[in-house]
Nucleic acid binder design. Structure first.
Lengths: 166, 166
DNA sequence: AGACAATAGTTGCGCCCACAATTATTTCTG
DNA sequence: CAGAAATAATTGTGGGCGCAACTATTGTCT
C-alpha cells in the first residue's frame, strides 16, 4: 500500500461518476460477476449432491480430455489457470482420494504426470450431469448453440491477448 | 465426498472423449479461463504498482458508483458476489486502511453502510488507470465498443437466468 | 568436462473467502 | 403485547490458493 497521502478526512464529496466507464469496462464487470454467479451455483449444486468441488471436476475433465489420460503438472496448471504451487496441492488431494496417480517420465526425471484412474473417470461421469444441468440453466436457456460459439470465440480472443501480450 | 465405489484400481481405459462437450460447455470453459487469466493479470499489475488487490478496487468502485457514496453491507455483498461473512472482513480491512468507514441507519439499527472516505476515492482514482490499462490490453485490442457491448449483454442475460432461476 | 543458467516440481507461510453458528433488531401473528 | 419468524450483520473455523524460497534435473557455453 502506498504511503499515506495528505489524508483529508471525512466523507468523499460525490463528484464525477467513478463507477461507470467504457463499454469495455462494463463488459469486464459483467464477465467477472457472471463467472462468480455461475460457478457459485455450480459449487452449490455439487455440494448438494454430495460431490467434490468444481476444481476437482475441472482437473478430472482436463486429464480425461488428453489422449493418453494423463497430463504434465505444468500443462495442467496452465489449463486450470492456477499456479504450479497450487496445482501440486490440488493433485495431492485427488491422489489421496484415489482418483488420479502420479506417474513419471523416464526420459526427463524432472517431469511428472497426473494420470487418471478408473475411480477418477467414474467420478467424473458422475459429476458431468450435475455441471451440465447448471450449464443448461445458465446458457442453453438463453443462447443458441451459434450464439454460444460466438461467445466462446470472443472470449478466446480476449484471453489470447491477455496471455500472449506482456 | 461419496462413499467408495467398487474401486477398480489401475489406469482408466481411454474410451469416449469426456473432456469436450457442447458449445455451451465450451463457452463456459472459455469464460472461466478468460476470467482467471485477465483477473490474474490485473492482480499482477496492481501488485507491481504497489497497489492493493483487485477486490479492494471492486469494492471502492461499487461504493463510488452509488449516489450517496455509501452502500449497505448486503447490497455490497451481492454486487461483489461474495458471502456476507466474507464481506464483513473485507470491509474491516478497508476500514483499517482508512479508505471507508462504517455508518449506521437510524431508522433500522440492523443495517450498516460502508461509506467512502476521501482517501478511498483518491486511492480509487489511482487504481483506475492500472486496471484500465489491462482492460485496454485484453478487450480494446480485440473488440470494438459495439462488440464489447454485445458481449456484456450476452453475459448479463446468462447471469440473469443464473440468479433468478432456482 | 565444469560452471552457470533454465526448467519442473514441491514446500512453508500467509491471506482471503465460504460455511455454520451467533447476536441484534425488526416484523409478523395470535 | 408476547412469542415466533424473518432479516442484517458479525465471529470462529477451516480449506484453498498465491507467493517466494527451495530442491532436483536438464540444457548451454566456453
Amino acid at each position: 500500500m502506498p504511503a499515506e497521502r495528505s489524508i483529508s478526512q471525512g466523507p468523499a464529496p460525490a463528484s464525477a461518476p467513478l463507477g461507470t466507464c467504457s463499454p469495455h469496462h462494463e463488459a469486464w464487470r459483467s464477465l467477472a460477476r457472471t463467472h462468480a454467479a455461475v460457478s457459485g451455483r455450480m459449487q452449490e449444486a455439487l455440494a448438494a449432491a454430495g460431490l467434490p468441488p468444481l476444481a476437482w471436476f475441472e482437473m478430472l475433465a482436463a486429464i480425461a480430455s488428453a489422449d493418453d489420460q494423463r497430463m504434465r503438472m505444468g500443462e495442467l496448471a496452465d489449463a486450470l489457470v492456477i499456479t504450479r504451487g497450487g496445482l501440486t496441492k490440488l493433485v495431492d488431494r485427488l491422489v489421496k482420494a484415489g482418483l488420479i496417480e502420479r506417474t513419471f517420465c523416464d526420459t526427463d526425471r524432472r517431469v511428472s504426470y497426473a494420470t487418471l484412474l478408473q475411480a477418477g473417470a467414474e467420478l467424473l461421469e458422475e459429476m458431468v450431469p450435475v455441471v451440465s444441468a447448471e450449464l443448461e440453466l445458465a446458457f442453453a436457456a438463453r443462447l443458441t448453440e451459434r450464439q454460444a460459439d460466438e461467445l466462446r470465440a470472443t472470449l478466446d480472443s480476449v484471453r489470447g491477448t491477455a496471455c500472449s501480450g506482456e
